Amino acid sequence: MKNETSHNIEWESISKYLSGEMSEEERTAFEKLIDSNSEYAQIVAASEKDLGLVEDVIQIREKYNSDHAWNQVHSRISKPDNKNMSILANQNFKRVLQFAAMIVLVIGLGLVSNKVYKDYLSPYKTFISKAEDSSKTIVLADGSTVTLNGEAKLVYPKKFNSATRNVSLEGEAFFDIAKNPEKAFIITVKGAEIKVLGTSFNVIAQEDKVEVLVESGKVQFSELENNEESVILEKGDFAVLKENSLNKTLMNDDNYLSWKTQKMVFRGMPLKDVAKVIERTYRVKVEFESNDIANEKINTTFIQDPLNVVLTNICMSKSLTYEKKGQTITIKKGI
């Protein structure tokens, strides 16, 4: 796992990276820096986006050719019997057009730099994990850690200065909260709120439901629109908020946290269900050549094994083979 660290912002390096002027070695090192620091990643992403704005401004300036514009005007206002006045107008009007073009460019660059610095100086940070990431860990200002599954979004303050420690989440994440009885930690998700003082738990915030699994400590899980609709969850408790209904139960899925622990346990499980666990753990898509293969059952356990090792072992046990194209895996009968 990679923890967020603090780095000085090197604008020259960001410029070289975005302009493609880095060597392969420099680029690799710089991308490792981006991966290890969400603040850097935000600034690079904002700079890359705003670079498009600069290019648009430049294109407008290039299209607005002052020489060409003057030539058109000159052909209309210059007369043979007023040559000196024509030359003077030429020079003055040309300067006006060039100055106007410069103003447009400066304003464009000002908008870009203003946005970058505004994001940089904001009291909040936003981190969005990549689709292929399954265990990106961020350390918050109070020492709490948040491990995000792929395509999760976390918004959090750079410093917890208020009476409570508030963050918001979209997607899935595992929270390990630093204890502070005087300052509750509150997570806002779609239609729900999770309040803790110090504990560890998993949250999935989807479009139609919110799930919470508590690994240690105690959590208060509430519906935002109805404060009376809440439950207290302790170790092993699992609750789901769906369609304004909040239900508490026990978790009996050994692989619910496999995306974080990289541990998968399969006990007489059909490959079609195994595939769902693999997809969630490694952020891939698994398909089968036939239903017969999908219904094959296996008994095995994997602990922090790379995806290729998992697939190879599963296929060998059933005389199967697999083909990987991008993030899609197809399991087929062996030759």
Rank of each mutant, 00 (worst) to 15 (best):
G334N: 08
F221N: 05
S258C: 10
T137V: 12
G191R: 09
L18C: 01
N65S: 10
K242N: 09
K195Q: 06
Y256P: 00
N247D: 14
A163G: 02
L148F: 01
L320W: 03
Y282M: 07
L97K: 11
I107G: 04
G191M: 10
F93A: 14
I77L: 15
Q220V: 05
V277R: 02
T145H: 13
E170D: 09
D81N: 12
S66F: 03
W11V: 10
A163I: 11
Y322D: 07
R95H: 07
I293N: 09
A89S: 13
F30E: 07
K79R: 15
E225K: 15
L51Q: 01
V214F: 11
G143E: 12
F266V: 12
I194D: 01
S15V: 12
N90G: 15
L246T: 02
A163H: 14
D81A: 08
I14R: 06
E151H: 06
K158W: 01
K136W: 08
E48A: 12
K190M: 09
A275V: 15
I34N: 07
K153D: 10
K248W: 05
K94L: 15
E289R: 02
I186E: 03
R280C: 00
V219D: 05
Y322W: 04
V116Q: 03
S317M: 12
S168M: 10
G326Y: 08
G326C: 09
Y256D: 02
K159A: 11
N37F: 11
G326S: 08
N37Y: 10
E215N: 15
N71D: 15
K260V: 04
L257H: 13
M1A: 14
F288N: 07
Q206I: 03
D50H: 01
V196I: 06
L97G: 08
S290Q: 11
E279Y: 04
L197K: 12
T28L: 09
C315R: 10
F160P: 05
K130Q: 14
N149W: 00
S13F: 02
Q91D: 14
M85P: 00
K16V: 06
M269E: 14
T5A: 09
I204C: 06
V167G: 05
K130Y: 09
I128N: 05
I103H: 05
M22N: 05
G110M: 11
A205T: 09
Y117V: 13
N180W: 02
G217A: 05
I77C: 13
D119F: 05
E243P: 03
K272W: 00
L88N: 11
F174W: 12
E287A: 13
